[in-house]
Write a protein that binds this DNA or RNA. Structure first.
Length: 705
DNA sequence: GAGCACTGC
């Protein structure tokens, strides 16, 4: 093997706590309470002073659970933690992976009788986490799930009147805040995984801060806010919550050796390949390797190369099981990463950043980090979102490193130099500064936030960014400008009731006028989940011939509708999905989403009618709701958007890829190498003019001629 | 002419 990716010996330190110069992130003057010091766990005296966890129990199982709870690092800090939290309105808790903070803290608060008057909410960025944590904690409390401890995620509410500890997704708590912005039923909100800075958590920061202040002003039950983070960069959190004290909890991570390359690598794919085989030839076969790359195409190519090389390795070299991992991979194939490899065979998992947070793979000893990620960026000048391969942040690199030390000590190979690493951004730009804000602004308006332009975000999006969202909502007819006050129109209020992007909510609301709500509900559901189309690159011809029967010359929306209809009419099941290259998991989700949306329509007394095969009214409806997303064929055979004359192209995944319709509406623009329109529908220019005469007065080329 | 990181309501 070539040597250019060789690694010099590196320092040893513990991950999860961030870079070794830990003190750097604790400026003097801030209240940092060390609840457990390094090497903690010896304080026998402290242990005896702890109050009992729960009623004494006789069951051996119960005792085992109890012992396990007591062995967690957080247990020794229990008394101190409770004493601190009892008197605080807000606190920031740093807890390393494995500290037990998420499962234990809510129980301590409950057992300690703090905030007994209300429910303790614990938010999570991901559904699976909310569900498994609730299951775990209800088990520890020896209660039935949904009684004392429960969870609420979309499509699944396992709570009751008795529920006092409630795990929920951050998006779900946000939705609850629309109907009660003071979050009255909660006495305490714990925002977990705050370091991930999801758009929902970021909006919640503002929502809980406002609710806390308002409740105090109104003399209501106080709201305790606890922000939990796994990283040390919590200054922002503390400042934002009026200088809330920072409590530090040591975790139980295994040491990880970190290696950097001696030279910068201009070809990270090649460097990754070399590293994998270097490790493969040197390390025992029981140690698995996790490689971070940027996307499906890259991962599939690398997987193939690895398998090819692995076939021709010298005798005595272990065999290799190469497993790609990315979100659009069918579920059954994702599950393979959890199965152990046969004896004498090494697992090599080649993954996107899905393995950074969402999926934890057991047995990983070696992490190969290319330092690259594919992520959305927001360009405030053009107001456009761009999906691009870029450098990871330092936080992200540490997160990847930490994946090597889940079960035992590990090794992380960074395919960049230490100097390069030092130049990485400290933190990933929070999602709220990288995304279209139309949904967020609609939700804030629905909560009757007095002035969304000055809303107290922890990391403020730029004014241009906020204005772009307001302009979009305005075009959708959601806004009412009165005396310099922004309010929602009745349509805007209805839009906010749907768990959808505003433009899709508007499409549904318009559909009753075109008597095609049943069809539009199906289309919007299909568009709002991951694609139901499964396109394995190796079987392209097969896919094309099977899919032919669904394709409509009217575009992707009608084609998707055809697929869903056939699936339903035939009584579609997994076998049908497999035969037709349809992702069955996503298809099931479509049905669930559709039922939820239909329910919301019925609740607002909207007539739900079918156009009975009349596709023109469906397309007219799409033209009326997506008129701001229009592109027209130019004399030279290319396309340009109607409003800004941005050159665009039909995405290769579209059924219209080889066609040249004069005028189309699209669901979204996607910038990669080029600016692509995704999910197209052929429309009549006249329909567009009808939909928004003012908007198109001087714009529409086809209508003018 | 040729392509799509990850969540979530």
């Amino acid at each position: 093997m070539p040597e250019e990716a060789g690694f010099p010996a590196a320092k040893r330190f513990r991950p999860g706590s961030g870079p070794p110069n830990r003190s750097g992130s604790c400026p003097p003057g801030r209240r940092v309470v060390m609840l457990l010091t390094a090497g903690g766990g010896s304080g026998g005296g402290g242990r005896r002073q702890q109050p009992p966890l729960a009623q004494p129990s006789v069951s051996p199982y119960r005792e085992a659970v109890e012992l396990q709870r007591r062995s967690l690092p957080i247990f020794q800090a229990r008394g101190q933690l409770l004493a601190q939290l009892r008197n605080l309105d807000s606190a920031v808790l740093i807890g390393e992976t494995g500290s037990g903070k998420t499962t234990q803290l809510p129980q301590y608060l409950y057992e300690g009788g703090i905030n007994r008057q209300g429910v303790i909410a614990v938010t999570q960025p991901r559904r699976v986490a909310a569900i498994s944590l609730a299951t775990r904690v209800s088990d520890e409390k020896r209660t039935e799930l949904g009684k004392l401890v429960g969870y609420t995620v979309r499509f699944d509410d396992v709570t009751s009147e008795d529920t006092r500890i409630k795990f929920l997704t951050d998006g779900m708590l946000l939705r609850e805040a629309i109907s009660d912005s003071l979050l009255r039923k909660y006495s305490c909100v714990i925002l977990d995984e705050a370091h991930e800075r999801t758009i929902h958590t970021d909006v919640l920061f503002g929502v809980v801060k406002t609710a806390q202040r308002r409740r105090k002003e109104l003399g209501k039950l106080p709201l305790k806010v606890i922000v939990m983070s796994a990283t040390m960069d919590v200054d922002l959190f503390s400042q934002y919550f009026n200088g809330a004290p920072v409590l530090y909890l040591e975790g139980r991570q295994h040491p990880i050796q970190v290696f950097y390359t001696k030279q910068p690598q201009n070809d990270y794919l090649h460097a990754a390949l070399v590293s994998v085989f270097q490790i493969h030839q040197e390390a025992p076969s029981s140690q698995d390797i996790l490689v971070f790359l940027t996307g499906q195409e890259e991962i599939e190519a690398m997987s193939k190369t690895c398998r090819d090389i692995a076939k021709h390795l010298p005798d005595g070299c272990p065999s290799m099981l190469v497993l790609p991992l990315y979100a659009s991979l069918p579920y059954a194939q994702q599950l393979r990463v959890f199965q152990g490899a046969p004896k004498g065979c090494r697992k090599v998992i080649i993954s996107t950043n899905i393995a950074e947070t969402s999926i934890t793979i057991p047995g990983v000893k070696h992490v190969v980090d290319t330092g690259m990620v594919k992520a959305k960026k927001y360009n405030p000048d053009s107001g456009l979102e761009v999906l691009a391969v870029q450098r990871v942040s330092k936080t992200q690199a540490w997160q990847r490193t930490g994946r090597a030390g889940r079960e035992d000590s590990g090794i992380c190979y960074r395919l960049y130099t230490e100097e390069e690493f030092e130049k990485f951004e400290k933190m990933t730009v929070p999602e709220i500064q990288r995304c279209n804000l139309a949904s967020v602004m609609l939700q804030l308006l629905a909560m009757k936030v007095p002035n969304i332009l000055t809303f107290d975000f922890m990391s403020k999006p730029s004014p241009d960014h906020i204005q772009a969202a307001i302009a979009q909502l305005d075009l959708l007819g959601a806004l009412d400008h009165k005396d310099d006050q922004l309010n929602l129109t009745p349509i805007g209020r209805k839009m906010a009731a749907f768990p959808l992007e505003p433009k899709f909510a508007k499409t549904i609301l318009l559909s009753s006028k075109f008597h095609c709500t049943e069809e539009i509900l199906t289309i919007v559901s299909l568009l709002s989940v991951d694609s139901v189309l499964y396109n394995p690159p190796a079987r392209r011809d097969e896919v094309q011939s099977v899919r032919k029967k669904f394709i409509s010359s009217e575009g992707d929306h009608v084609t998707l509708l055809n697929i869903y209809r056939t699936f339903k009419n035939i009584g579609g099941n997994k076998d049908w999905c497999r035969e037709n290259f349809v992702n069955s998991k996503n298809m099931m989700l479509v049905a669930e989403v559709r039922a939820q949306l239909r329910d919301i329509c019925l609740k607002m007394s909207m007539p739900v009618m079918s156009s009975r095969g009349d596709m023109e009214s469906v397309r007219r409806c799409l033209a009326h709701s997506l008129f701001m997303n229009t592109a027209e064929l130019q004399p030279d055979g290319t396309y340009a958007t109607t409003d800004t004359h941005q050159p665009v192209a039909i995405h290769p995944s579209s059924v219209l890829f080889h066609c040249k319709p004069a005028c189309v509406v699209y669901t979204e623009l996607l910038y990669t190498n080029k600016c692509y329109m995704r999910d197209l529908c052929v429309v009549d220019a006249e329909w567009l003019y009808e939909a928004a005469p003012e908007y198109f007065r001087r714009k529409l080329r086809t209508a003018r001629n």
